[in-house]
């Protein structure tokens, strides 16, 4: 579904992405993992069109995404930190996005589960960080997109909300969607993840099936497998920047 070919990006002297080659398909839940500054966020932003790569190509269903922005109708994005206009009401934000998307079919499961209608008339600046994350999450799923890109989705959420989100992701996975997640909290992704993309210094260190990773590292648990994998890679030091 998404094809990434020879993607390169530099920020001045820092190499953020260095020849990324990958392919993601329907039904996959890909965990994007790597230390800080490894290029995870840059890669996501490239897919979303927020960052322009220096070289390489990203294709969605065989079409380059650099031509125009309509491909983003297929994507739902949940940012790491959701900040919205202070005086905008929750309801207005949903209205606005609905009018932008021009969609007719809405998936309001999370809106209901998070009981967002209760705060529908509240301005954004009166919401806590966690509530704003709930809003972000509900927005990402709102248009029932084929691709979900979730940046640290469970970071600011309370355990209950986090659990609801994971259940939601599970259901979406069964609907044969492509889900791309970055996360620090490894155990979170255990049951969901089908594939792992491990980035370090802008390069892919591992890209494959979770099972393969487990076999390769000889660990049963996802978290441990990753930890083991990181240990083996530690030989090459990295600079923590971005």
């Amino acid at each position: 579904m998404i094809q990434i070919i020879g993607l390169e990006k530099r920020f001045k002297k820092l190499v953020a992405l260095n020849g990324i080659q990958a392919e993601f398909s329907k039904g996959q839940v890909i965990s994007l993992i790597g230390p800080n500054g490894s290029g995870k966020t840059t890669l996501i932003k490239c897919i979303l069109g927020l960052v322009h790569p220096d070289h390489g190509l990203i294709k969605l269903n065989g079409q380059s995404i650099f031509k125009d922005e309509t491909y983003r109708t297929k994507i739902g994005y949940m940012p790491q930190i959701g900040r919205y206009p202070d005086q905008m009401k929750v309801g207005q934000l949903f209205q606005l996005l609905k009018s932008i998307r021009n969609a007719s079919r809405f998936d309001e499961e999370l809106v209901e589960q998070y009981q967002l209608k209760q705060i529908w008339e509240k301005p954004m600046n009166s919401l806590s960080g966690g509530t704003r994350q709930k809003v972000s999450a509900a927005l990402a799923f709102l248009f029932d997109p084929e691709i979900l890109i979730l940046d640290e989705p469970t970071a600011g959420l309370d355990p209950l909300a986090s659990e609801l989100l994971k259940e939601k992701m599970q259901r979406e996975k069964l609907k044969d969607k492509l889900i791309l997640i970055t996360s620090h909290i490894l155990s979170d992704l255990d049951e969901l993840t089908t594939h792992v993309l491990y980035l370090q210094e802008g390069q892919i260190q591992f890209n494959g099936n979770l099972e393969d990773l487990k076999i390769q590292t000889g660990e049963e648990k996802f978290g441990k497998a990753i930890a083991r994998f990181m240990e083996t890679k530690k030989a090459s030091p990295y600079v923590e920047t971005i």
Binding site: L48, G49, L50, E69, T70, Y71, R72, T73, I75, Y77, P79, I81, G82, R83, Y84, P85, D86, L97, I100, R101, S136, I149
Partner: peptide, 14 residues
Amino acid sequence: NSYEFIEMLLSQPL
């Protein structure tokens, strides 16, 4: 102040 919101808007088909 609108930077994150602008980012979010840009992830939409706009």
